[in-house]
Design a binder for these strands. Structure first.
Length: 606
DNA sequence: AAAAAAC
C-alpha cells in the first residue's frame, strides 16, 4: 500500500526522524483523524462550507469530487517547516496552483489537493462524452512507431510499467491516470533516466513526454537521499527544474506532475509570468522539490534570490527548439550556466525537442554529459490519424468559409458541445476580431493570445476544454505542446510561414492516437509554404489538390520545400561524423560539422 | 512579420 511503501522510503531518508514521528505510524485510517491540521499562515482561509476531510480519505479517494475529495495525508504533513527547501516526505500540502485564484473555493486548503478530482467532475458533467472517448490513450496507434537510439551503453527499453521499479505510490498514480502501457518515448526514456543517464530526445508532446521525464524525477527524489537545507533562509532549493516555453505549457506540466506525484510527498510548484508573484512565492516557501517554470519568471526569482539552483539534481528542458525560437537562449544559458546550478555530470539533464537544429545540438553539447540520443517517430500528427485538407480561400472569403465549415461540422453530427474547433490566425488583432465576429454570428468562441492577460488566457483555455466555448481562436501561443483532448478540427485560418509551425498546429488534433481533421485556407499570401506543404501532405498520404502541386512546382516563389527526409525529429549528429566515440559531444565544435545536418535545417518531420 | 516571455 501507499503508506507502507512511502513510509519505508521516508524512513530510509537520512535525518527523517522528525518525519517518522509524524507519519511513520500512519495507517490510512489514522490520516482521517489528524487531517484537520492547518498551518498558522493559512488559518481562516478555509471555506466555511468545507466538509470534514474525514468523509473520504484513503488511497482510493482519487475518484472523489472537489469539496468532498479528500487528501489523505494531511496528518503526514510536516507542518511549520516552511523555511525548508523541501518538506521531506510524508505528503506535502499542496494546492491546485494552475492559476491564481484557485479553483472553486478550495484554494486555501493546505493539504494535498486531489489532482484527479477534476477529471472526475468533468466525467460526471459529461458522462456520454466520457464514456465514448475518455478511455485514455489509444495504444494501437503506438504500434510501429519508429524509434532510434544512440550513445554508449543504452539501457534496454521496457514493455510495461511493471518492469520498472517506480514504487507503489507512483504506480498507483499511473493507474489513476489510466496509463496501461508505456508509450514509445516512455519505454525508452524512463530506463535511460533511471540509469542516471543524460538524454537528448526528439519527441512530441502527446507522445507521453511529460510522464517520461516526470516519472524518473519523482522516483529519484523519493528514493534519493538529499541533504536538507538550513532553516532560516527565505530561499528555496528545488531538486528538479522543468523549463518550458509558454505559461500554459508550464501550467499543464504542473498539473500532470501533480498527478504523478500525488501522495508521494514530492512537492511540485509552478512559476510563470503574468500572474501575481506573491502567491507563487508563498507556494515556493512551503517547500518545492520540482519547480516547473517559464524562463523569464525563473530568472526573476533567481535574481531576487527566492530560488537557488544549487540543489538541482534533475533538469528537464521541454520544447527546447521552441524556447530557442522564442529567443530564450540567453535566459536559459543564464539559468543553466551562470547561476548556481551544478554542472553537467553532477546533475541529470533531459533535453526534449521536436527538431534538432544546430542550436539545439550546441545546447546538447553544453548542457549534457555523455548523453543518449533518442528519436521517436511521430504519433498521429500528420500521419494517418490526421486528415489534412487544403482549400484555396481568398482573405475576403475566409470568414464565410469558416462559417460553412463549422456548420458542416455540426451537421455531421459530431457531438455538438465537444467537437472542439481550434482556429489558428496570424495576429493577435486578427484573433480578437475573428472571435468577435464569431460571437456576433452566434458561435460561442473565445480567444487566446499574448495580448490577453494571463487570467483571460487561462479562462479561455478552460472554457474551451470544458466545451463551453467549443471554438478557440488562437495565435501560435497555442501551437505547441498544449494537450487539449477532443480537438476534432484544427483550422488554419491563416497559414503560418513555416512548415514546422504548421505541423505543430495540426498536432493539436489527433492527440493520443485519436483521429482528427485539419483544414487549411491557402491563398496567394501563402505561396512560400506551397512546396513544403505539398510535400508534407504527400508524405502523409494525404490528397494534394492539383492547384497546390502546381504552385509547389513554381520555383519563382522561392519556397524552400522540405529539407531532408525520413520521419524522425533529427539524428544524433555524433553518429554522422568521424568522432563517434560515445561521449565526445564537445568534439562537435571542432569536428567541422554535423554530418548531413550540418546545414542546420531541421524540420519537425525529419 | 508575428508571436512569446519578467517586473
Amino acid at each position: 500500500m501507499r503508506s507502507s511503501w512511502a513510509d519505508a522510503v521516508e524512513n530510509s531518508v537520512g535525518g527523517s526522524s522528525d518525519n517518522a514521528g509524524i507519519s511513520g505510524r500512519n495507517e490510512p485510517t489514522s490520516a482521517v483523524a489528524k487531517s484537520a491540521y492547518v498551518p498558522p499562515h493559512l488559518r481562516n482561509r478555509l471555506p466555511a462550507s468545507e466538509p470534514p476531510a474525514a468523509s473520504v480519505g484513503g488511497p482510493h479517494s482519487f475518484n472523489d469530487r472537489p469539496g468532498s475529495g479528500g487528501p489523505t495525508s494531511g496528518s503526514r504533513w510536516g507542518g511549520g517547516r516552511s523555511d525548508y527547501g523541501r518538506q521531506g516526505y510524508g505528503g506535502g500540502g499542496g494546492r491546485g496552483s494552475g492559476g491564481w485564484g484557485g479553483r472553486g473555493g478550495w484554494a486555501g486548503r493546505d493539504r494535498e489537493v486531489n489532482p484527479f478530482a477534476n477529471d472526475d467532475v468533468d466525467a460526471e458533467a459529461e458522462p456520454a462524452f466520457n464514456d465514448q472517448e475518455n478511455t485514455g490513450i489509444n495504444f494501437d496507434a503506438y504500434e510501429d512507431i519508429p524509434v532510434e537510439t544512440s550513445g554508449g551503453n543504452v539501457p534496454p527499453p521496457v514493455n510495461t510499467f511493471a518492469e520498472i521499479d517506480l514504487g507503489d505510490a507512483l504506480n498507483l498514480n499511473i493507474r489513476r491516470c489510466k496509463y496501461v502501457r508505456p508509450t514509445p518515448v516512455q519505454r525508452y526514456a524512463i530506463p535511460i533516466s533511471l540509469a542516471g543517464r543524460d538524454l537528448m530526445a526528439c519527441a512530441q508532446t502527446g507522445s507521453g513526454k511529460t510522464a517520461a521525464f516526470c516519472f524518473p524525477i519523482i522516483s529519484g527524489i523519493m528514493t534519493g537521499n538529499f541533504p536538507r537545507r538550513p532553516r532560516g533562509v527565505r530561499t528555496v532549493f528545488p531538486l528538479a527544474l522543468i523549463l518550458s516555453p509558454t505559461r500554459e505549457l508550464s501550467v499543464q506540466i504542473n498539473e500532470e506532475a501533480k498527478k504523478f506525484s500525488y501522495q508521494t510527498g514530492v512537492r511540485v510548484v509552478v512559476a510563470y509570468g503574468g500572474a501575481p508573484i506573491n502567491q507563487q512565492l508563498r507556494e515556493l516557501e512551503r517547500g518545492v522539490d520540482i519547480l516547473v517554470a517559464t524562463p523569464g519568471r525563473l530568472v526573476d526569482l533567481l535574481e531576487r534570490a527566492k530560488v537557488s539552483l544549487q540543489m538541482i539534481r534533475y533538469l528537464a528542458l521541454d520544447e527546447a527548439d521552441r524556447m530557442l525560437d522564442m529567443g530564450f537562449e540567453p535566459q536559459i544559458r543564464k539559468i543553466v550556466e551562470q547561476m548556481d546550478m551544478p554542472p553537467p555530470g553532477e546533475r541529470q539533464t533531459m533535453l526534449f525537442s521536436a527538431t534538432f537544429p544546430k542550436e539545439i545540438q550546441r545546447m546538447a553539447s553544453d548542457f549534457l554529459s555523455n548523453y543518449i540520443f533518442l528519436a521517436v517517430g511521430r504519433v498521429g500528427s500528420s500521419t494517418d490519424l490526421i486528415v489534412q485538407r487544403v482549400e484555396y480561400v481568398n482573405d475576403s472569403d475566409k470568414r464565410s468559409h469558416l462559417m460553412d465549415l463549422i456548420h458542416a461540422q455540426r451537421a455531421n453530427g459530431v457531438q455538438g458541445k465537444h467537437a472542439l474547433t481550434l482556429v489558428f490566425v496570424e495576429t493577435k488583432k486578427g484573433a480578437d476580431s475573428l472571435e468577435h465576429w464569431l460571437c456576433m454570428n452566434g458561435f460561442p468562441a473565445t480567444t487566446i493570445h499574448g495580448d490577453r492577460t494571463q487570467q483571460e488566457r487561462e479562462m479561455a483555455l478552460r472554457s474551451f476544454k470544458s466545451g463551453s466555448t467549443p471554438i478557440l481562436v488562437a495565435t501560435d501561443v497555442a501551437a505547441r505542446g498544449l494537450d487539449i483532448p477532443h480537438v476534432a478540427h484544427v483550422i488554419n485560418f491563416d497559414l503560418p510561414n513555416d512548415i514546422d509551425d504548421y505541423v505543430h498546429r495540426i498536432g493539436r488534433t489527433g492527440r493520443a492516437g485519436k483521429s482528427g481533421l485539419a483544414t487549411a485556407f491557402f491563398n496567394e499570401n501563402n505561396m512560400s509554404l506551397a512546396k513544403s506543404l505539398a510535400e508534407l501532405m504527400k508524405e502523409a498520404n494525404q490528397e494534394v489538390p492539383d492547384w497546390l502541386t502546381r504552385f509547389a512546382g513554381r520555383a519563382s516563389f522561392g519556397n524552400k520545400g522540405r529539407r531532408g527526409g525520413g520521419r524522425f525529429g533529427g539524428r544524433d549528429f555524433r553518429r554522422d561524423s568521424s568522432f563517434n566515440r560515445g561521449n565526445s559531444s564537445r568534439d562537435y565544435h571542432r569536428g567541422g560539422g554535423g554530418g548531413v545536418y550540418g546545414g542546420g535545417y531541421p524540420s519537425a518531420w525529419d
